[in-house]
């Protein structure tokens, strides 16, 4: 019989202690990946530690000019936070493409990140937006840019006993915005064949002051396409600049062929979506 135990600590410190005490423990945020994996027998955690009873980890807080999204915050709550939705519409729309409403009422962006699926929708959007993961653990707290957390499918840079307590996003900046799109065969309830997030900052003259473009499902982990962003900086998004951006996007694509799409298709679609999200983020930035 299963000997798994279930814990619902009230504080981060308690959760840390539980994790330290049981190396085979897993944290439960939304549970939409964890419970599926438990059921399939892929994992058999010795203990499950539910983060949702830790008040500090639920909800979105505006803090030091930025946003802190607690690790147990459901994706649908991001949409309900007007300031966050205005500052990072791309992150919020990405988080609200995961699964269905039922799933998003449970799923969290921290969980989406820590599940370390290459196709996680919220991750490219968070990378583009410059998100940082706040981590608690036996050695104390630390921070890690989101793009450095997933290491390979299903594996993260978290040390034993560590867990993500929150995601921090920068505050709203003038003439800045972001966007995310993914390609799926269905309109909802699907996994990205490819997903692209872009965050754009415009200079006063409408030229591109900064750009971050991140890609999902085109490699073992979501990736920041630095050269693609760089190709836009200083331009006015002329056709030639967009072509260079798209080429740079394709250059970092290292996808595999699988049941959801061929490598060639994924690479081609990454460029198509990158053009689309850059356009949307640029328009949003112009209005921001």
């Amino acid at each position: 019989m299963s000997t798994m135990t279930f814990h619902a600590p009230a504080t981060v410190a308690e959760a840390c202690a539980l994790l330290a005490a049981e190396p085979g423990a897993r944290v439960l945020a939304g549970g939409t990946d964890l419970i599926v994996q438990m059921r399939s027998g892929r994992i058999a955690p010795a203990a499950v530690i539910d983060l949702k009873r830790i008040g500090a980890l639920s909800g979105v807080r505006e803090q030091a000019g930025g946003f802190v999204i607690g690790a147990a915050t459901r994706c649908t709550a991001l949409k309900e936070h007007a300031a966050l939705a205005a500052a990072h519409p791309g992150v919020v729309e990405a988080a609200n493409l995961i699964g269905s409403v039922q799933v998003r009422n449970r799923a969290t962006v921290a969980g989406n990140l820590c599940n370390a699926s290459p196709a996680a929708d919220s991750v490219p959007a968070m990378i583009a937006a410059g998100a940082v993961a706040l981590i608690a653990g036996p050695q104390g707290a630390r921070e890690l840019p989101v793009e450095h957390l997933p290491q390979s499918p299903g594996r993260t840079a978290l040390a034993p006993g560590e867990f993500v307590t929150a995601i921090r996003l920068p505050g709203k900046a003038a003439h800045s915005s972001d966007a995310y799109q993914r390609l799926t065969p269905r309109t909802e309830m699907d996994i990205a064949i490819v997903g692209v997030g872009a965050a754009i900052t415009l200079a006063g003259d409408g030229s591109c002051a900064a750009a971050r473009i991140a890609l999902g499902a085109v490699g073992p982990v979501a990736v920041l396409a630095e050269a693609a962003g760089a190709a836009l900086v200083g331009t006015r998004f002329e056709a030639a600049a967009l072509d260079r951006m798209a080429e740079a996007v394709q250059a970092v694509c290292k996808p595999i062929d699988d049941k959801r799409g061929s490598a060639a298709y994924r690479t081609a679609m990454a460029a198509v979506l990158a053009r689309r999200v850059v356009q949307i983020a640029r328009e949003r930035a112009g209005e921001a």
């Binding site: 065969p185 269905r186 309109t187 909802e188 309830m189 996994i191 049941k259």
Partner: peptide, 9 residues
């Protein structure tokens, strides 16, 4: 999830 029957949308 991967056997894609049409959803409402």
């Amino acid at each position: 999830l991967d056997y894609r029957m049409p959803v409402c949308s």
